[in-house]
Every structure is written in structure tokens, then in C-alpha cells.
């Protein structure tokens, strides 16, 4: 079952074409990793999925992105609803300068008018889902900025989870974390995929190999190869993929 399907997807920044005719299907409740050298268009592709690129001047897209039978590139799409459904975790954790509690419930405060007991339960469930509850339950009103980098990244994921998205987009979510924290975030991703569809952009091929079910390799805006992670890392079909993952590219 596919959650996101792209059809002839293109994106231009002014005259520069950053994404070229991408056709791919992203499976529901799976982790899909997008890999490729810097500037290959992988983060741009990720950002199209919740229309983050719309914020950049001169951006133009063509093609289709079908999510639940709907083309999210259509003009009539409500971007607030879209970003609620398809949330993003960034490279550097970006908690708001508010308390831990307020960070988690922020989205629901914006979208709905929940009462205190409902917000409390939401905060607890969201923090539990990212395995932070036991650590932070007595510090909920402390500033989120006092947390460690890993805790901040988990908190940002909890903040997303609290608005009940269906897809989590992760742009290099572990690049600022040490190996132990990275491992813990990866374990969390494995837990989360039971409930969410996850697409992760990563520079670490080992990370892609460890955690993803499917992998796509991009080069110069093109999706060169897309398939089961097991196959991509043991027997890639395209020589350019082979050269990249074996370190011969460049």
C-alpha cells in the first residue's frame, strides 16, 4: 500500500531544475531513505511533500504528488492541513523557546481548542511515543532549550506526533547527534513506523542501510534507482548507484 506516489515530478528554482521527472511510490508504514551526494535534490524532494518549497521565491513545480488519492500540488490544497498531515523534522532540532509542555501541545493549541485535561493527556502520550515521558514528566514546565540535543530532537518529533500526522519527513535528523543518540533516534524511528510513514534524507549510507525498508538514490536531480534497501546495498542495478554507495563516485 502506497502513501505517497509521485508522477513526473519536477521542480525548478528559477532556471535551475533541482528535481527531474521523479516517479516513485512510498510505502505506508515503512521507512524510505533518500540518499545521494550534496546538491542532488534529495532535501528539495523531501520538502515538496509538504510544500515547504512554496516559501521560496521563484520556485515552480510540475507533475503530481498523490497522497490518499489527492494531488497535493493542486492549487486548492489547504497548506495548514497538509502540513498537519505531513510533518517535518529538521537537521537541527528547533524547539520553540517555550516550556517542554508548551512545545508539545503547541500544534493542537493552534489547530483545536482542547481543554487542559485533554492537552495534558496529549502531552503525555506524545512524550511517551518518543520515549521521553519518564525522563521529563517532572520537568514539563522547564524550558525546552535546556534539553540535550537528542532530547530536543525527540521533543520536536513529539511536537509533530501531537498533531496526529500520517507522514513524517526527516531531513538528516541525526546529523548533529553523537553515535549513541543517533542509535536511540533510529530505534525510535523503528517504533514510529508502525503508526507513520517515514521518509528520511540522510548522508549516512550506513544509517539508510540500517533503518530503511526502501531506498532511493538521487543524482543531479534525478531519481536514479529506487527499490528495496536490501537490494540497493547488496546489488544495485545502476552503475551510478554502485559507484556512489561504494565510494567510487566523485
Amino acid at each position: 500500500m502506497y502513501k505517497i506516489i509521485t508522477k513526473n515530478l519536477n521542480l525548478w528554482y528559477g532556471d535551475f531544475q533541482a528535481v527531474k521527472n521523479v516517479n516513485a511510490s512510498f510505502s505506508e508504514n515503512k521507512i524510505t531513505a533518500i540518499i545521494g551526494p550534496s546538491g542532488c535534490g534529495k532535501s528539495t524532494l523531501l520538502r515538496i511533500f509538504n510544500r515547504m518549497n512554496d516559501l521560496i521565491e521563484g520556485v515552480r513545480t510540475s507533475g503530481e504528488i498523490i497522497v490518499d488519492q489527492e494531488n497535493i500540488l493542486d492549487k486548492g490544497i489547504d497548506l495548514v492541513d497538509l502540513r498537519k498531515k505531513i510533518g517535518m523534522v529538521f537537521q537541527r532540532p528547533n524547539p520553540f523557546p517555550l516550556s517542554i509542555y508548551e512545545n508539545v501541545v503547541f500544534g493542537q493549541r493552534v489547530h483545536n481548542s482542547l481543554r487542559k485535561p485533554e492537552l495534558d493527556s496529549l502531552a503525555e502520550n506524545s512524550l511517551r511515543s518518543v520515549l521521553l515521558w519518564d525522563e521529563l514528566k517532572d520537568k514539563l514546565h522547564k524550558s525546552a532549550l535546556s534539553l540535550s540535543l537528542e532530547q530536543k530532537q525527540r521533543l520536536c518529533i513529539a511536537r509533530l506526533v501531537a498533531v496526529k500526522p500520517e507522514v513524517l519527513l526527516m531531513d538528516e535528523p541525526c546529523s548533529t547527534l553523537d553515535p549513541q543518540a543517533t542509535q536511540r533516534i533510529e530505534e525510535l524511528m523503528r517504533e514510529l513506523k508502525n503508526n507513520y510513514t517515514i521518509i528520511i534524507v540522510t548522508h549516512s549510507m550506513q544509517q539508510a542501510a540500517r533503518i530503511s525498508d526502501d531506498t532511493g538514490f538521487m543524482l543531479l536531480g534525478e531519481l536514479i534507482e529506487f527499490g528495496k534497501t536490501d537490494n540497493i546495498f547488496t546489488n544495485p542495478l545502476d552503475k551510478r548507484t554502485e559507484d556512489y554507495i561504494t565510494g567510487r563516485y566523485g
Binding site: A209, F233, T234, N235, T241, E242, T246
Partner: peptide, 9 residues
């Protein structure tokens, strides 16, 4: 080296 693909094989 944590080899991949043909190197790993």
C-alpha cells in the same frame, strides 16, 4: 570500511 554492494559481495 563497512563495504556495500560489489565490495560487500
Amino acid at each position: 570500511h563497512q563495504p556495500m554492494a560489489s565490495d560487500l559481495r
